[in-house]
Design a binder for these strands. Structure first.
Lengths: 234, 234
DNA sequence: CCTACCGATCGGTAGG
DNA sequence: CCTACCGATCGGTAGG
């Protein structure tokens, strides 16, 4: 009997996964606006028209729900900030600029209603040891590590001065981005975003200063423009 | 009868004010580590060995307690970061450096156990309109405004280049400080503090670049060293 | 400042 | 996925 109706079982599993996605979609909004602690089971259940027990059964604990929400948010972040920079921008400085641009656009476009989920979660859990804090710290390290890696690449490609310290520069760029998010959310105006863009631009110019002309950086081997035009022509 | 014992009434009022101070002392610790929302009346009452109603009567609402906690924290911040810079440092660039140094020391020394209360509160309340959010925003504007003002002074004193934009520079310095707090709290290591110091130093050097020799900035009218030596000799 | 209490909501469980 | 329930805690009030 069980073997004869595999498609019925599959449909149930599929439905369960869809419900889980719906839950995590609402959860990311709540987490970004009011924090991971405001992510209560009763509230989410009411919002989605389910019972508390029904929602709860998908995760098993509030902590597991918080971690699942962080992981879902990480996927969204990778897809909207990191992946495009690795797919469309050349390695090194162009990719670094793309990461910073995408991050600021990710804030400006309100990919998450309340701004960067990880900035909020980091502040919320930095004094509460446990698996949630560890997950937040791991995601943050992953992001800053990616910045450092791309900075190292840019240096090796001769696009940044040889004495540039990737850890130092990644810290400064990340700080300017955090400052943009912080000001944009609290003061509700775009000035912090503009200032972060300008600050990052000038900081990168300084890191490249006297090393190579800015115009040469965009097309280090001269092939980018040709490929772009081909893509557009299709 | 009432008029005959004014000293008794005064003692009661004094005791009430002392209790209020004790409450706000604990409240600032809770707010900095776990946020203004974790500032529950029952928890504070247990911690201080009082009844909920007794503690509650000092403020009248949770919101009023949160705002009183922010105001108490502002006093601590002014006393440990702003006042020393205005009392001991010369106007302009030396005072700007003192503000940044004091801020980073205020984080390193854990003046508040969980880091900068206002950074946390800003993130926690940026999506929750109301009096608490307004108070946080006002305190933040006050701080960034002070930075801008001192930057303007430094520019007028010829210590920074004439094309320096005080709003832009204040944003960048504040972002580096926030980044230091953020990293220090989440990653529990001092590297972010060192990187913020270095970033601020280099940013200020650049803002002064080609305008006046760094050595000349410390003693704009040549009298500071003499006064310092006199102080030490006493 | 206290005791005693209110309705609402919390995370989580039993049993289906 | 549901109903029905648990003890704990929330902000706040009555009355002293």
């Amino acid at each position: 009997m069980q073997v004869r109706r595999p498609e019925k079982r599959d449909l149930r599993v599929v439905h369960g996964e869809e419900t889980r996605k719906r839950i995590l979609g609402s959860a990311m909004d709540v987490a970004s606006t009011e924090g991971l602690e405001a992510l209560t089971i009763g509230r989410l259940a009411t919002e989605l028209g389910m019972s508390k027990a029904g929602l709860f059964s998908h995760f098993g604990s509030k902590e597991a729900l918080q971690i699942a929400t962080l992981d879902a948010a990480r996927e969204v972040f990778l897809a909207s900030v990191v992946a495009p920079a690795f797919q469309s921008a050349e390695p090194g400085l162009p990719r670094l600029r793309a990461l910073a641009d995408n991050w600021l656009r990710y804030i400006e476009d309100k990919v998450f209603r309340g701004g960067c989920v990880f900035s909020s979660a980091a502040v919320e859990f930095d004094s509460r040891p446990g698996p949630v804090r560890d997950r937040v710290a791991a995601i943050v390290r992953e992001w800053v590590g990616a910045l450092e890696h791309v900075i190292g690449e840019a240096r090796e490609l001769g696009q940044l001065a040889p004495d540039v310290d990737p850890g130092q520069l990644a810290f400064e760029l990340n700080a300017l981005m955090l400052g943009a998010n912080w000001g944009f959310q609290l003061l509700e105006c775009a000035t912090p975003l503009e200032r972060a863009r300008r600050g990052i631009d000038e900081r990168l110019s300084r890191a490249a200063a006297g090393h190579r002309a800015p115009d040469a950086l965009e097309t280090p081997h001269g092939g980018e423009d040709a490929r772009r035009h081909r893509k557009r022509a299709r």
